[in-house]
């Protein structure tokens, strides 16, 4: 079995995001970039399948600007066999453009299973997996929290509203990974040292124009932070009202 993992580099969850002078992009200086955390689940799962003797190779494909090489090195450090970066110049929030770039490359490769994160935490899109499924005409199972691969078939436990379901399908297939699937390993330092020397193959991506473009960006209203609703049990109705109407979490 051959596995492909699609990975993206995203700003750290804790990064302080600043809007640029053009008012439609963010300032990258000072931001620490990390591997998309959900893609980390995908890499870990692929390596685990390989370690279980069920896959002979794991290749990670990244997309994005030159700096994205870093996350591919992380993938190598974790245990991925080979990597390729499909280099784009612009930072896009249009997942269809990204899916087409990935599909164009993947069509030239042989594979049995594609793994990727359920979403990328930068644009919050949950589209790459399902879109790739359509573009490659293979089944796609999303939000997977448990995966069993058995030769030509796979069985996946996936999250649905209010519970879960177990889905089976035939390979080749694509699976998007949800938190709970595994605990991504910390890359071994030996792996990190090897990855430092790894020459990342960089291929220019055949990107088409985005159909979704950002016109302006703005900061959200400052988080209320530290609002003491009241004292004791009598404050409860006010709290519930706030959670229901202001925070919209109930």
């Amino acid at each position: 079995m051959k596995i492909i993992v699609c990975v993206k580099q995203v700003p750290d969850t804790e990064a302080n995001i600043k809007i640029g002078a053009d008012n439609k992009s963010i300032v990258e200086a000072g931001i620490k970039f990390i591997i998309n955390p959900f893609d980390e689940f995908a890499i870990e799962e692929a390596i685990k399948i390989k370690e279980a003797g069920k896959a002979e190779s794991v290749i990670a494909i990244g997309w994005g600007p030159e700096r994205s090489q870093e996350v591919l090195r992380t993938a190598v450090a974790m245990g991925v066999d080979d990597v390729v970066l499909l280099k784009t110049d612009a930072v896009s929030i249009d997942s269809y453009t990204a899916a087409k770039i990935l599909a164009a490359k993947i069509k030239t490769m042989s594979y049995d299973l594609i793994l990727t994160g359920k979403e990328t935490i930068d644009d919050g899109n949950m589209q790459i997996g399902p879109m790739l499924g359509e573009l490659l005409n293979i089944p796609c199972v999303t939000l997977v929290t448990k995966l069993d691969v058995d030769g030509a078939n796979l069985s996946a436990k996936r999250e649905i509203e209010g519970g879960y379901e177990v889905v089976e399908t035939a390979c080749p297939a694509i699976v998007t990974c949800q938190k709970g699937l595994n605990e991504p390993r910390y890359p071994s330092i030996r792996g990190v040292m090897l990855a430092k020397k790894k020459v990342v193959a960089v291929e220019p991506a055949a990107a088409e124009a985005d159909q979704i473009t950002v016109t302006t960006m703005a900061y959200p209203a400052a988080r209320s932070g530290g609002k003491v609703v009241g004292q004791g049990a009598e404050a409860v109705p006010a709290l519930v009202k706030l959670l229901h109407e202001e925070a919209r979490v109930l």
Binding site: D12, E14, A15, N16, G30, K32, I34
Partner: peptide
């Protein structure tokens, strides 16, 4: 990532 063991944002 953030040069502290709790992974709090380094800007803070």
């Amino acid at each position: 990532t953030n040069s502290n063991p709790w992974n709090m944002g380094s800007s803070a």
